[in-house]
Simulated scan of single mutants.
Amino acid sequence: MPRPWTGVPRPWAGVPRQVRLAALTLAVLALAVLLVPPLVRLDQQLVDLRAAGLPPSLAHPFGTDQVGRDVLLRSIYGLRVSFLVGLVAALVSMVIGGLVGLAAGSLGGTPDRLLMRLVDGFTSVPHLLFGIFIVALFAPSPAAVVVSVGVTHWTTAARIVRAEVLSLRSRPFVEAAISGGASRSRVIRRHLLPHLLPHLLLATVLMVPHAIWHETALSFLGLGLPAHLASLGNMINDGRHSLLTGDWWSSLVPGLFILVPTLAVAVLAQHWRDRLNPRRRSELSL
Rank of each mutant, 00 (worst) to 15 (best):
F122I: 11
F122N: 09
L128H: 01
L137N: 09
P140D: 10
L102C: 06
S179D: 08
G109W: 09
V149G: 04
P111E: 12
V187E: 09
A90N: 02
V95R: 00
V174M: 09
S167G: 14
S93K: 00
A104N: 06
R190T: 03
S167K: 15
S183K: 08
V125F: 15
L115T: 06
V125W: 12
G121L: 15
G121K: 04
V88C: 02
G105E: 03
A176F: 06
I132R: 05
L115P: 10
L118P: 06
I178F: 08
S183D: 05
T152G: 09
A158P: 11
R184S: 12
G180I: 01
I160D: 14
L193E: 00
T110Q: 12
L168H: 02
V151L: 15
P172N: 04
I178V: 13
M94Q: 13
L102V: 02
G121N: 08
A104M: 01
E175K: 10
P111I: 11
V145L: 01
F138P: 08
A103T: 13
I160F: 13
T123D: 03
S167T: 13
M116H: 10
L99Q: 04
T152Q: 07
A104Y: 04
A163I: 12
F83W: 06
R169M: 12
S183I: 03
L91H: 01
A176G: 06
L87Q: 01
V100G: 07
L192V: 03
S170A: 13
T110C: 05
V146T: 03
L102R: 09
V174R: 06
V85D: 01
I188F: 05
V125S: 07
A176Y: 07
